[in-house]
Amino acid sequence: MAEAATTAARRGMLDHRSDVINGVSLVPAAPAYRMSLRARPDDLVALGERLGLALPTRPKTSASAGERHALWLGPDEWLVLDLGGRDPMQDLAGLQVLHSAVDVSHRNTAVLVTGEKAADVINAGCPQDLSLQAFPVGACSRTVLGKIEIVLLRTGEDAFRVECWRSFAEYAFSYLADAARGV
């Protein structure tokens, strides 16, 4: 995201933290656009058209189009991520369809967990079944990691995106690092 010279600089919660432990790499995700989207079933098509992807309606699934991802979090709730610098809030501006779109780009931050033992590391604090059968690539869920809430997205067989609120990011990173030392 290019910023004008006069613009206040951006500082992430996990700047300067990244690690590789027991073959598992923990890297803070780059800044991204994030939008919490709420809507009823009848309006999903219109919203999807504006966003450029069909909003998923099955639990624990996500939809992707290029750098944009829509994660099903609940029956009327999606987390829309845009890693390519296109603000989804802008795409929905002025749309006369019943919905709630709230910018949460800065509310969340994310740790990218990759490596053969990535699922084991996350399972040190996340009680869900992360086998590929139960949680295939593209699966996503709000859940817990230790004592915090996270949104988990499987981006590859050995790769996950762990989203959490920014003030919990240090806890999340430290938890994952401690878990990686113990796998």
């Binding site: 639990p59 624990k60 609940g74 009680p127 709000r142 817990v144």
Partner: peptide, 18 residues
């Protein structure tokens, strides 16, 4: 820890999430 079936997520999930 109980396992609770969520009628919206359509699967059983650990009690920690509830």
């Amino acid at each position: 820890m109980l396992l609770i079936h969520c009628p919206y997520c359509e699967e059983a999930r650990p009690e920690l999430e509830f």
